[in-house]
């Protein structure tokens, strides 16, 4: 931890950076994103297991884009999102520095997208055991049971859009739910409309979700909505051999035509 404080202090002192996007200790000891501009505030920064929030989304926020010399303290989720965002041209090489960590906890500076890609290749990409178990449980359900499961979950959704706001891949300047001519998704939060919203979101994240689970972690009602995007992520891998967040040159599964694709559904 002192590692990150020392490193960022040096960056700020030398003027190599004017802004560090990282983590600090928040309410009740939980980690939260922080923006550090002064060397004397570098002592706020932490990096430990509690720092599991994906903060890549800040990189394209207008207020932050305007900052010329910035660095981001990136956990593994953030790194994968950086790769995916780069592949979608949302962020650009050289616009920011990336401070990451080795498995041993050593701080490293990843100087190019290529280096990030290489680092990401060493990371685990699958689901955690708990999510795997829940996925298996859901897949073993009958259609009616599954409907019942999701109906119950969606009935709780208050449509606060914390899932969308915290997902680095939800960067559309105008989201489908904000379009009212026609109104694709109902504004009020009722079970059916909530279902439409979450299914639409999962589909839009097909081949783009890096399975960080930030959407579910952000949900005040603890809806396991990450399982929807995970499912499409797994399908993208199975059917199209595509794993989001692994290559900056990857073309998005649903936005790329290949002659060898089995697109029978279109015919």
């Amino acid at each position: 931890m002192n590692n990150i404080q020392q490193k960022t202090k040096e960056l700020l002192e030398s003027g190599a950076c004017t802004l560090i996007i990282g983590y600090e200790k928040g309410t009740g000891g939980k980690a939260r994103p922080v923006f550090v501009r002064k060397a004397e505030h570098a002592a706020k920064l932490i990096f430990d297991e509690s720092c599991d929030q994906n903060i890549a989304g800040y990189l394209y926020r207008q207020e932050i884009k305007n900052e010329s010399k910035k660095a981001i303290v990136a956990n593994n989720h953030t790194l994968k999102s950086i790769v995916e965002l780069a592949s979608e041209n949302q962020i650009h090489e050289g616009d920011f520095m990336v401070l990451a960590f080795t498995a041993e906890g050593e701080i490293i500076e990843l100087k190019s997208f290529e280096e990030i890609e290489k680092h990401v290749a060493t990371l685990y990409h699958g689901l955690n055991d708990e999510d795997k178990a829940t996925m298996q449980k859901i897949e073993a359900m009958t259609m009616e049971e599954r409907w019942g499961f999701w109906e119950n979950e969606f009935s709780k959704c208050i449509k606060c859009y914390a899932c969308r706001a915290s997902c680095p891949m939800c960067y559309c300047p105008t989201c489908t739910v904000e379009i009212n001519q026609p109104q694709w998704i109902p504004v009020p939060s009722h079970t059916l409309g909530n279902l439409e919203w979450h299914v639409m979101r999962a589909m839009h994240l097909a081949g783009r979700c890096i399975t960080c689970g930030q959407c579910a972690k952000s949900c005040p009602l603890d809806l396991p909505i990450h399982l929807l995007t995970y499912k499409v992520a797994l399908d993208s891998e199975q059917y199209f051999d595509s794993v989001a967040g692994t290559s900056v040159c990857a073309n998005n599964v649903l936005a790329t035509f290949k002659t060898e694709d089995h697109e029978n559904f279109i015919r």
Binding site: R32, P33, V34, F35, E63, K159, Y161, A162, S166
Partner: peptide, 17 residues
């Protein structure tokens, strides 16, 4: 205000609860 809201994601969770 912009410094205060720097990390705010602009969702409605706070208002709805």
């Amino acid at each position: 205000w912009s410094e205060q809201a720097m990390r705010c994601l602009g969702c409605g969770a706070c208002a709805y609860v």
